[in-house]
Structure formats: C-alpha cells, structure tokens
C-alpha cells in the first residue's frame, strides 16, 4: 500500500477515536503481530532488492510518525479524563473544617509559665514549697513576729496554732536558703491563701510568684534592672517603672512597684483609677533578720526578693474585671486563653 494512503487511513481512524480502549485496538490494528504496518514491513522481503532499502526507510519513518501520533492522542485523552475528574471533585471549601482542637491551659498556668520562662532564661531555678506551712516559715522566719501589726495584712487560715495555709510564697525563700549556700537565684510560684471574703477583687485562694536573688554584690540597682527587663518581656513592650517606698517585714528597704498603665499608656483610665500607674508587685532588699534566721553572713551577702500576684497580673494584661472568673471554671472563660 502507498505510504500516504496508510497515513491518511490511520489519521482518519485516530480522529474518530476518543477512548483509551479504542486507541489500544488501533495500535494492535497497525502494530500488532498481524497489524497493517507489521505486514507491510514483512512484505519488504518480496520486493526487488533495489527497492527494498527505500521502502524500508519509508516504512520505518511512517512507523515513527504513527507511533508519535498515537502517543499524542493517548496523552490528549488522559488529559481530558483528568480535567473531567478534577471538575467533578470540586468541593465547597467554606464548609467547616474537620478539627481536633488543642486544649487550653488555665490562664493562671499560662501566666506562671511565661514568667518562669523569662526567669529561667535569666538563670533562675524554679523552686516549690508546701501549701500547709508552719507559722515559723510563714511568719517568724520572715521577721513577722507574733502580735506585729504587719500580721493584719495576712488573714490566716489555721489548722492548729502551729499550722496554717501559707499566706504568701515567701516561706519558700527560707526553705531554699536553709538548704543551699549563695548564690541563690530562684523563683517560686504557687498557691497562697487568705481568709478574705469572696468579692470581685478577693478570693481565699490565689497565686503568687516569689523571686529571690542573693550573692555578693547584689544591689537595689540590680533589682531595678532585673524587674525592668522582666516586665518589659512580660508586657512585650518597654515599660516605665515607678518604685514607691513601702513596708514588708522581710525586706529593707521595701518597695511597691508600679508600671505605667498599659491600657492608657499612663494618661489615666478606668483600669488604673486615672492614676496612669498600675500596682504590679512588691519587692525589696532582703532584711538582715532573715539572713540571721538562715545563718547567712549579712555583711558578705546582699540580695533582693520580690512577690508578684499572678491573678492580678492576668487581670491587668487581659482586662478581666472580676477575679471570681478564675476558679469558676466556666469553659467560656477558660477557652478564651
């Protein structure tokens, strides 16, 4: 058969096809054992010798061309199939996603962990102490003798005359100093208890974080620098601090620290009672009486301590108006954080 004729026939048949299965049939019709082209190639042998070479060359060229056409058509059909199925697979991406939520840590835990992170990064270790304390650790060792008016600020829950629920995390200072020599660089988070009636700003249980740093050469200026760094990290912006003289029996000098109100930037608002400052923590230089109690040389070592109320910080950072939310465990509150 004439090359051109074969080519045209093949082309016509191919054009009429649009399924992969039929494409395969066509392949067999031409290239199979008894296929048209296979037959033509076999027939070369019957030609006169001088025609064989040219005929062979032409047929092989034809074979390549047809193969390529076949392959192209094959790809075309595959593309079409994919395009069709892609069309069908279209979904509504605005339908709700299938989720596996992550649980929420309690807001108090989140604040404590954050503060721990900051202080650990500054070389502090995290210590613990018991919640049922003795009067010695909670008061006497901290230079709060019996019948001192300073006890008025500690409405204490008693188990017996000796045992109480700790009113502050400060006893951890004493417990730590009793077991180690300076340098001491610790923070101690934990629950504290005072017999305050429950109202929007008081609960009988709350959390504090105690900080203590004792070594040679530790000064009030270092306390300032450390707190400034800590609070800048906590508030995630440069804060302005104000130190006010105050009184804690276990520090001298003692200070209350205010931070410029983060809500109004110090201009005065409801949260800061129009003062522009928020009371943030209490601190001071460890009192020589405390060193005496734990057997440290107060001439050699100096140091500072601070205590910070966790709920109050959380309330200020998040604008929570009522402390009672913290332990009501309403999921709608818990899962906001």
């Amino acid at each position: 058969m004439e090359i051109e004729l074969i080519k045209k026939d093949f082309g016509d048949k191919l054009d009429a096809l649009n399924e992969l299965k039929h494409l395969d049939d066509l392949r067999i019709e031409y290239f199979g054992k008894k296929g048209i082209l296979t037959q033509e190639l076999k027939n070369i042998g019957t030609l006169p010798p001088e025609e064989r070479s040219l005929r062979g060359k032409n047929l092989n060229e034809l074979k390549n061309i047809l193969n390529k056409t076949l392959q192209d058509k094959n790809n075309l059909i595959l593309d079409e199939i994919m395009t069709n199925s892609i069309e069908k697979e279209k979904i509504d991406v605005t339908l709700p996603g299938r989720w596996k939520t992550i649980g929420t840590k309690h807001i108090v835990e989140q604040v404590i962990s954050r503060i721990e992170e900051i202080f650990i990064s500054m070389g502090f270790t995290v210590e613990e102490g018991p919640e049922i304390e003795t009067c010695y650790y909670n008061f006497e060792a901290l230079n709060i003798p019996d019948y001192h008016p300073a006890r008025d600020e500690h409405d204490t829950f008693f188990f017996d005359p000796e045992h109480i629920l700790r009113t502050q995390t400060s006893p951890v200072q004493i417990r730590t100093m009793e077991t180690m020599k300076p340098p001491v660089r610790i923070i101690a988070p934990g629950k504290c208890y005072r017999s305050d009636d429950i109202d929007p700003s008081h609960l009988p249980m709350f959390h504090q974080i105690e900080g203590l740093y004792i070594d040679e050469g530790v000064t009030f200026a270092d306390l300032k620098a450390t707190l400034e760094l800590f609070l800048t990290e906590l508030f995630r912006k440069k804060v302005k601090l104000r130190f006010r003289p105050s009184y804690f029996p276990f520090t001298e000098p003692s200070a209350e620290v205010d931070v410029n109100c983060i809500i109004c930037d110090g201009k005065g608002c409801r949260v800061c009672s129009n003062k522009g400052w928020l009371e943030i923590l209490g601190c001071g230089m460890v009192d020589p009486e405390v060193y005496k109690k734990v057997g440290y040389d107060s001439e050699k070592y100096t140091g500072w301590a601070f205590g910070i109320g966790v709920e109050r910080i959380a309330m200020q950072l998040s604008g929570i108006p009522d402390i009672r939310y913290f332990y009501e465990n309403d999921k709608r509150f818990l899962c906001q954080y």
Partner: peptide, 25 residues
C-alpha cells in the same frame, strides 16, 4: 534612699557568674 528618692538612682545589673536556670522538683 526614701528621702533621696527611690526613683533617683539608675538600674544596673550586678556582675555575676552565669548559672543555668531550670526547674527543680
């Protein structure tokens, strides 16, 4: 310090050896 002013001196870190922070207990 009280009369001179608590805010009348600058923050300054004590120069001390570095120890790693970590959890105890």
């Amino acid at each position: 310090v009280r009369i001179d002013g608590y805010n009348n001196f600058s923050p300054e870190f004590a120069r001390v050896a570095i120890t790693p922070g970590k959890y105890h207990g």
